[in-house]
């Protein structure tokens, strides 16, 4: 049983934990804050934490000059498309491995995991060649396919660990209760699997959104998602702190919010069920 902790100790822990939390969060906080300053105030010396003129101008300028919405839309389509496609392929596979296991199930799972370890740079040129050959370069379809493939092992694994937690006895009970296979899947299995599928969707959407090797290397102008858009700010002529901050804030805000919902699934998903 938990014991009462002295108030003094709790205060000390609180102060320390908040100090460290704020320190770690500071770069993000600073970026968000700067995005609301004017360019001049953004590089003011000393740095301004308060007392600056709050402005939304940077956001307007970023959208106007670089057509931010197009990149955002590309990110949504690519991350969303690859995740949904991955789920569609993975659900039947994970289902059959969890409920109809065979002697090879474990080997197949581990082999799938091993494909995730393939260093991307090792196959960069072949993939580029294939993309050129099939006219996939700088298309959203091509990226959806690649991101689906690199995240497929994680999706299968996550779903597998979730499905395996559904006790077989419940499915047997449904059978004893007179449920047909269709009724069993519709009324018993699916409702029980939905939380797991939702978590898998969420985490893989985040992973796909942030993916920055293939999105940088396989896109140019038309299919570039936010990762590539932000990278274009690294060139010196694009360097304005406030605008960079506004662009960055817009790129990370949606995912930060989604991410906070997926903390628990993050551990399970990224450790392939080895830590829960």
């Amino acid at each position: 049983m938990a014991r009462a902790v002295t108030t003094r100790r709790k205060i000390a822990t609180t102060v320390l934990a908040w100090a460290i939390g704020l320190l770690i969060f500071f770069p993000i906080f600073w970026t968000i804050l700067t995005s609301f300053k004017t360019e001049a105030q953004a590089i003011n010396n000393p740095p301004l934490f308060w007392g600056f003129d709050f402005t939304l101008e940077n956001y307007a300028v970023v959208q106007e000059r670089s057509d931010y919405m197009r990149f955002l839309w590309n990110s949504v389509i690519i991350a969303g498309g690859s995740t949904i496609l991955g789920i569609l392929v993975a659900v039947p596979a994970a289902w059959s491995m969890a409920f109809v296991p065979s002697r090879r199930t474990k080997d197949i799972l581990l082999w799938m995991l091993s494909t995730k370890m393939l260093p991307a740079v090792g196959v960069l040129y072949p993939i580029s060649l294939i993309f050129v050959e099939f006219n996939l370069l700088d298309t959203r379809g091509g990226l959806i396919l690649v991101l689906m493939l690199i995240n497929l092992p994680i999706i299968v694994w996550m779903l597998y660990t979730y499905f395996r937690e559904i006790p077989a006895e419940i499915l047997e009970a449904a059978r004893m209760d007179g449920a047909t296979l269709k009724a069993e899947i519709l009324y018993v299995l699916t409702p029980m699997a939905i939380p797991g599928i939702a978590s898998t969707l969420l985490l893989n959407f985040i992973l796909a959104w942030n993916e920055a090797f293939w999105t940088l290397n396989l896109t140019a102008a038309s299919a570039a998602p936010l990762t590539a858009f932000i990278a274009s700010y690294s060139s010196p002529e694009g360097l304005f702190f406030a605008k960079l901050s506004a662009a960055s804030t817009m790129a990370i805000a949606p995912i930060l919010i989604l991410g906070w919902f997926s903390q628990k699934q993050l551990v399970r998903g990224l450790t392939f069920g080895a830590v829960k």
């Binding site: 934990a17 942030n210 932000i230 990278a231 790129a251 995912i255 991410g259 993050l266």
Partner: peptide
């Protein structure tokens, strides 16, 4: 350890993981 605002501090600490690599590098 038990302390006030555990949930919020956890969020603050986890946040960097969700920042896309290009953004965190540029920031």
């Amino acid at each position: 350890q038990p302390f006030w605002g555990q949930g919020i501090v956890r969020i603050l600490v986890i946040a960097p993981f969700f920042v896309m690599p290009t953004v965190s590098a540029l920031v």
